[in-house]
Amino acid sequence: MERGTEEAAERRRVRLAVIGLGMIGKVHAQFASRLDECELAAVCDTDRSREKFSQELKTAFYTDYRVMLEREALDGVIVALPNEAHESAGSACVERGVHLFVEKPIAPTVEAAARLIERAAKNRVQLLVGHHRRFNPLVEAARQIIRGGELGSLLGVSVLCGFYKPAEYFIAGPWRKEKGGGPVLLNLIHEIDTLRYLCGEITRVYAEVSHKGRNFPVEDTVSVSLRFENDTVASMLLTDTAPSQWAYECTTGENLFFYQTKENCCHFFGTEASLDFPGLNKVYYADPNRRGWQHPLSIRKTGVSTANSYQRQLAHFCRVVSGEESPRTSGIDGQRTLIAIEAVLTSGQTRQPVLLEP
């Protein structure tokens, strides 16, 4: 069992349940069964074959989350269902006064997100959106470097995200071939949210999308140009149908399910220094009197202790439920990321830039 702080051991453990035992739902359930801060009271999935998984975790199994919510005394629920079910399942939780942790995206549409946020506020429960990268120590360190001014004024960002989703990924989830199940909503949303967390709010989006790789109804490749409120610009390229060693998943070591490489997937360029990620190598001129492309550069690496971001996010949710912390990614924050993602999809369809309200 993972050990928490002495204070966590002394406080009452929060009772949690997980709705949806797909790939990410199982991750949440496994951590919830091991953390000292919480008790995994139940799990729910419409697929009865997944009851065996609940037996391994020694927790109750349900096929209907409404029945689970009625029978179990829960403090919080993690919703890890397909995007289209986030609003309905999340609403069922908050309307019973149960604190909610909903996987990204917060909802399938901005309007659905607004309704869920309103219901959570009306019922006075906390709403956390599952953008787990915000809890990665590498991301936290990059945020401190960037927002702390070590790079000077941030000028631009380059993001590469390439990987190959195998056939069984789509066999296990046929909905991933349909509208709402493509890499923009499932993968690019992570990149967008991470950049918002590191660089600030996005004000302008232009995107080109392609179905060339798989010819599914949803996109498989997207190129995005962003402008931030501080006039920083960024370029992003994502594809889920190409062998690649440049992606967050395979460079950070966060999830060892993915083949790991030693490459960097992001580069941040500032007036005083530049930074690669996840390497966290800062490139700068050591002598302020010798600046220019003809002068030598210095490189300084920031050392960071690794920790599992999913576990840290879940521990944070327990503290949110206990009233000790506010959600790091609130419903409104998750909605802002979704607004930017919808702008990507709109721009890709219209081939026109989209302006975002501040």
Rank of each mutant, 00 (worst) to 15 (best):
T306C: 04
R312Q: 14
H316D: 10
Q335A: 14
A340H: 05
S305W: 11
R336K: 14
T329F: 10
Q313W: 10
A340E: 04
E324T: 05
S326D: 13
S305E: 15
S330V: 09
Q311S: 08
G334M: 02
S309M: 13
G303V: 03
Q313K: 09
G331C: 09
T306M: 04
V304I: 12
R336L: 07
S326M: 06
T306P: 10
D333P: 01
F317V: 09
V321I: 15
S305Q: 15
V321Q: 13
V304F: 04
T329G: 10
A307W: 11
I332M: 11
Y310W: 11
I332E: 15
S326T: 08
I332K: 10
Y310H: 15
E325K: 13
I339H: 04
H316G: 06
T306Q: 07
Q313G: 09
G348H: 00
Q313H: 06
A307T: 09
R312L: 15
G334H: 01
R336P: 00
V320D: 08
C318V: 07
A307E: 15
S309W: 07
S305M: 09
R312N: 15
A340Y: 02
G303F: 07
V344R: 00
V320S: 09
Q311G: 13
N308H: 14
R319N: 06
V321G: 11
R328K: 14
R319V: 02
H316I: 05
R312C: 11
S347C: 06
Q313T: 04
L338M: 05
S330L: 08
Q311E: 15
I339Y: 01
C318I: 09
A340C: 08
E325P: 05
V344L: 02
H316Q: 08
L314Q: 09
A307K: 12
Y310M: 15
H316L: 10
R328L: 15
A315V: 07
E324D: 11
H316P: 06
T346Y: 02
Y310I: 11
G303C: 03
E325V: 14
G303N: 10
Y310C: 14
V320L: 15
A343S: 04
A315E: 13
P327Y: 07
A315W: 01
S347H: 03
E342A: 14
Q311V: 08
S330T: 11
E325D: 12
R312A: 15
V304A: 06
S347W: 00
V344G: 01
